[in-house]
């Protein structure tokens, strides 16, 4: 499962998408929005067609490099509040070492190559940008 979505991530569905009889381990990573000072949420922007393509390439490389059985990556975009999940990675492998390694590698790669940008938003965010983000959220 490769997905870029505005709605909250269904973590159980991401995990279920990599369940395989031959897998003895599933490693799961969740990136969550942290309550830093003056941060209420993060606004994520994406170049979606390229992000989907980059994520799919990344899964192919993970399968070749670590021998994982299945991998899913879901990234949320738009406004994600403090405490919300912004990214979920599930990685199934025959043994746990490969599952952990592939999951950690994939998250590093997501931050390095997938065209997604984030911006902090909070009480000090300029009003114009807060309005813009809110309008975008309501219309999609």
């Amino acid at each position: 499962m490769i997905r870029i979505q505005r709605s909250p991530i269904d973590v159980a569905a991401v995990i279920d998408s990599v369940r395989r009889d031959e897998a003895g381990a599933i490693a799961v990573f969740l990136g969550t929005v942290r309550a830093d000072p003056d941060v209420d949420a993060l606004d994520y922007e994406v170049y979606k067609p390229m992000a989907i393509r980059t994520l799919a390439d990344l899964v192919d490389v993970a399968q070749a490099k670590f021998g994982v059985v299945a991998m899913s990556i879901v990234h949320r975009v738009g406004r994600v509040p403090v405490g919300g999940d912004s990214v979920a990675i599930a990685c199934a492998a025959i043994h746990r070492a490969e599952a952990f390694a592939a999951c950690a590698w994939a998250m590093d790669e997501v931050k390095r190559v997938v065209p997604i940008w984030k911006q902090e938003t909070g009480p000090r965010t300029p009003r114009a940008r807060r309005r813009r983000s809110g309008a975008r959220r309501r219309t999609r």
Partner: peptide, 12 residues
């Protein structure tokens, strides 16, 4: 063509 700022996906 796309001009891309350094990416910053994820959570931190």
């Amino acid at each position: 063509v796309a001009l891309l700022p350094p990416v910053s996906g994820g959570f931190e």
